[in-house]
Amino acid sequence: MALFRETADVSVRPAVAGDENAVTEVQVAAWRATGVLGEGVIAALDVPAMRARWSSAISSPPGPGFAVLVALDGPDVVGFAAVSPGQVLSLEVLPGSQRAGHGSRLLAAAVDRLRADGSETVTTWSLVDDAARAAFLEASGLGEDGRSRTLATGVREVVEHRWSAQV
């Protein structure tokens, strides 16, 4: 006999102390899965430093309008979004949990947070060669706005395009 849940046990909530481990794991796994950054960049990541930065962002946001949100599947953190005034700084979902609505829930919660903080637009950045993210952003109503930036990773340069929309 199959077990069915009357409601899905999925949600989004503000990150709390202790979530930094899962957030870091999600970020590294998602970046690795895209293949866009390359294994050299992934191998060069300072994971303990990343974890410490997420811990600080969660427990001591740098100012008003900054927040980290996590997507849950049952008790498990499967994704996260980080926001600052007017911007989704990061949005990642575990590769095995993608295409299950977590990214959409995170983006909706992030936009709700931006609106509540008075933002009239939302912007985010996407790696140029990340076709799956570009498709997700486009389906979510964002569009490339003509801006780009180059990030120096210490291994190679990485180019991102900015996406934006009115909220």
Rank of each mutant, 00 (worst) to 15 (best):
R51T: 11
S104K: 11
G79W: 01
E92M: 04
L69N: 03
G65C: 07
G79F: 02
T121P: 00
S55N: 12
L127A: 15
R99V: 00
T123W: 05
D112G: 12
E92T: 03
T123N: 07
L69H: 05
D130V: 01
V68F: 02
L127M: 15
A43P: 00
V88S: 01
V77K: 12
P75E: 14
I42E: 12
G40H: 13
G118P: 06
T121G: 02
A43F: 04
V70D: 10
S90D: 14
A131D: 14
S60Y: 07
D46K: 07
V93M: 09
V78Q: 09
D46I: 01
F80Y: 15
G96Q: 13
G103L: 09
F80L: 11
A44M: 11
W125C: 06
A57D: 09
A135V: 02
A134L: 09
G103E: 09
S126I: 13
A134Y: 00
V41Y: 10
M50W: 12
G65I: 03
A131E: 14
L89N: 11
G65W: 06
V68R: 00
T121M: 07
G65D: 07
L69E: 06
G101W: 07
W54G: 04
Q98I: 05
A67Y: 03
S56M: 11
A71V: 03
L106C: 03
A135H: 14
G86E: 12
R115P: 01
M50K: 14
